[in-house]
Design a protein around this nucleic acid. Sequence first.
DNA 1: CGCATTTCCTGGTAGC
DNA 2: TGCTACCAGGAAATGC
Length: 297
Amino acid sequence: LLAPTTLAGTRDAFYRRRMPELPEVETVRRELAPWLEGRTIREARRVDAPAGPKYLHLEDAVGQTIRAVDRRGKFLILPLSGSDELIIHLGMTGVLTPTRPDRHVRAMISLEPLAEQPDALYFQDTRRFGRFLVAPYGDRSCLPTLARMGPEPLDPEFNAATLFAGLNSRVTIKTHLLSQRPVAGLGNIYVDEALWRARIHPETPANAVSQARTTTLTEAIVAVLQASLASRGTTLKDYRTTTGERGGFAAQLDAYGRTDAPCHRCETPIRRTVLGQRSTHYCPRCQRRAKRPTRRT
DNA sequence: CGCATTTCCTGGTAGC
DNA sequence: TGCTACCAGGAAATGC
């Protein structure tokens, strides 16, 4: 058995890193769009990664022009002038940069030169959880999560009624939100933060969250994502935007990574558990379990 | 179909 | 300084 201090130390180290969730991916998108849109792809290839479903059909992008740099949940989607789109997921450690990294470059595209603009984009992904592939426009058969993804939380049509309709599962609210189906773009950090803000216990069955509480959760999701986006995302340890700057939201976290630290509302120590193989942080006093389901599933 | 479990992958760290 | 074991997680794959 490991001593608790060992586990605590290991976790602390991890919390100083980053995970790209919606605000981090949107920050990357905003940086890439100005110099990628309208550029024609001269070369596209897998570099240091095995052939397989994460790196499909890159050669099909050659000769096509990047029409836009869009985002859907945590995916970057670049529609091309032909009938394809370039789909990128940063996974845990993915970085997009015009400067060629020394190690762990999994894929790259080069561009027809344009004055005073970079002429290449490198995908560096140390832990290889990311994806970088070309698919026919709108074809998500290789990306089932994207195919079944819920509404964009920062779009105007996202509202409590929409979210409530999506909470139609007996799975815990934490796990269900991570599935991307009720709403797009939330990962482990912002799920914990949103549930803390809405005072919902992470083990509450999704279909036991009341309509009133779902309204609060809707507002909490939008507020935490907007606040993080305003700070250009959460920097844990090594998160950088494509221009090498740190995101700034880490200091504003209320739950994630604050094990045993006092709750910012009531001073009760934040508790850490594991739910669906994911570390989970919540205030045992503020976030109470719902007593019974509000509806059947 | 739903839901649970397993898999992928590497660097930082504790502990010796 | 070096060695070893552990462990974080998004999404897909697999199992039932």
